[in-house]
Design a protein around this nucleic acid. Structure first.
Lengths: 347, 347
DNA sequence: CTGAAAGCGCTTACAG
DNA sequence: CTGAAAGCGCTTACAG
């Protein structure tokens, strides 16, 4: 493999100059830069990341932590982030927690993390108090997406989860529903707030309409298709089924549709169903939903993260954001009405 | 951050000994090892990957290249691979091609890759001749999953795509169908063989049954839900619809079910549908399919890749597999009959 | 705008 | 089983 001194020799300059020219630093004359680039091209030179990182103190790598890459939201976010990082010349180090305690500890072993990446993106990953303390002490730049623990100094990109639930529930009320159930996920997980926020929005709107939220119509399970199915079966088992179900995500809504069908109930004639996300399959299934911009959240978070990291043209390594940002960036969501929601049948 | 000499000082040994003890090399006395580990623990020492990589010549990183992480098969594979690598102490560098020429070039810029990772896993990513040549010259260890270009010296983990198609088609024939359509994906992509293999199995079985494959019943689109829907719409537009559709993957099958429903046709009463994968949603939708072990393929491929990489306990860096493996490892698949396939209605 | 030299934090022969 | 020393391939003050 060609090294930097091969390029330096061919271009007739020092290795320091090659380094500067290749990184686009402004302190290199146009003529010299041209010669260096030509030499590098000719020798098919690629910088050694290990050497560059050791000498420069930057890793050029971003850690992206997600609960489960196979869930629609996280896959979509990662795809968008990877795209952005790739174009910016950063590597993406993927951590898929997958509910494994061991992985979790490895990721949040902060000394490990600190020497491995320049910044961290935490997607819907709530932190335990000890983890938060350790991470904060690191002074690594970072960004969070979606609900989770706010990390001091880290910007946050998300949607308005309470608002989303309000919109969904109001849509069902507007159609004339009164017995509206809610199914949601992950009660056992850490300090997730997504399911709490969405439940809050649901209850608030019911109360505004003069309806007392009925605990019997509120079932927790997992944020998956199977979780939605199980929650719905539980709902049906309790007797006196609702005329509408607000599922905390589309995957759960799909599970609900299946469980309803299996129970001989038709959607929307017998029971209306609405979810949250606008999953790829939602339109195929005719599922009404509150669309959230997943890719956009990933892209924006990546942009925010890299912006201070670059620290301007001469790119001195910046170890933390100059101005710790305040409130989260809230991206808009919108109601999409499809075939899975309709007025309840007359009594 | 603590460095190796901090640990050495506390333990009262040289940095060389710390290095050996921490990596578990056998040439360290038990007592010394204990002291080193205690010191490292006490100082919360974590090795610097950059320094270690530069000095050791190994990156401890595996590149995983997938077409689109958001597609079921690839997400599931990546999750399994990440799990395995994580447990083995390797980092996973994710490359999501996403049809972007630019990313593709960056990934397959071999000098870049060589300095960045110890090995490569190529998932369903066919190579252009120039890419194959460059990659082969690198002498990097690697493994491929699913169809794609065989790389000399790289093992391959996959399923029998021809066999899968045969089983699916035969299932439809056994039910009594004669007008069986096939919808598949990615004709524009590079030298994919998946769609070719599956088409071959489909045609072979038809011919065995004395049926001449009808090009009018064979539509190409994309390997996605939308692709399946579009292919099916095209099929219906051509008139005289089939009584059954064999879709090259479950996502296309789901799109087909939607398109059929939109056209006022019922599944399976009017048209039977079968896919390939056993996607998470397949059982929810009652979709008959040929199940393939996606996670298992990822896990196995990771194991194969790391096995020679470790090269035994003393772990000297091995640059290529000792014995270039021969034929691919073929994992079993199985027919799962659900509600989307049934005998055709009597004429 | 450019170069010589030090240094980033490890691992690896080599010697004992 | 252990240590002293060289070296991995860059980047960064520092000096000019």
């Amino acid at each position: 493999m060609t090294r930097i001194d091969d390029v330096a020799r061919l271009a007739g300059v020092s290795t320091a100059t090659v380094s500067r020219a290749l990184r686009g630093l402004p302190t290199v004359s146009a003529a010299t830069r041209r010669r260096v680039l030509a030499a590098a091209e000719q020798l098919e030179y690629a910088v050694s990341p290990s050497a560059s990182r050791l000498a420069g103190g930057r890793t050029g790598t971003i850690a992206v932590v997600v609960p489960r890459i196979t869930r629609w939201f996280f896959g979509t976010v990662v795809e968008a982030v990877e795209d952005f990082l790739q174009q910016s010349g950063y590597d993406l180090l993927l951590y898929n927690l997958g509910g494994r305690e061991q992985t979790r500890q490895r990721v949040l072993r902060t000394a490990d993390l600190h020497k491995r990446v320049d910044a961290v993106m935490l997607v819907a990953t709530p932190l335990r108090p000890a983890e938060l303390t350790a991470l904060t002490r690191l002074e690594l730049p970072g960004v969070t997406i979606s609900s989770g623990t706010p990390v001091p100094g880290w910007p946050c990109v998300r949607i308005d989860d309470v608002g989303v639930a309000r919109t969904a529930t109001r849509h069902l009320l507007d159609l004339g529903h009164r017995r509206i159930a809610h199914i949601t996920g992950d009660p056992d997980e850490l300090a997730y707030t997504t399911h709490l926020d969405r439940r809050r929005g649901y209850r608030d709107v019911l109360r505004d309409a003069g309806i007392t939220p009925d605990p019997y119509l509120d079932v927790e399970s997992q944020f998956t298709i199977g979780g939605g199915a199980r929650a719905t079966e539980e709902l049906l088992r309790r007797g006196d089924p609702p005329t509408a179900i607000f599922a905390a995500c589309d995957e759960m809504a799909m599970g609900a549709m299946t469980a309803l069908r299996d129970a001989g109930l038709r959607v929307p004639q017998d029971v209306s169903v609405i979810g949250v996300d606008d999953h790829d399959l939602a339109s195929a299934l005719g599922l009404s939903t509150i669309a959230q911009p997943a890719a956009e959240q990933g892209r924006l978070a990546a942009r925010i993260l890299l912006d201070p990291l670059h620290g301007g043209p001469p790119a001195p390594p910046v170890r933390r954001r100059p101005d710790p940002p305040g409130s989260p960036v809230i991206l808009p969501t919108r109601l999409i009405v499809r075939e899975s929601t309709a007025p309840p049948r007359a009594h």
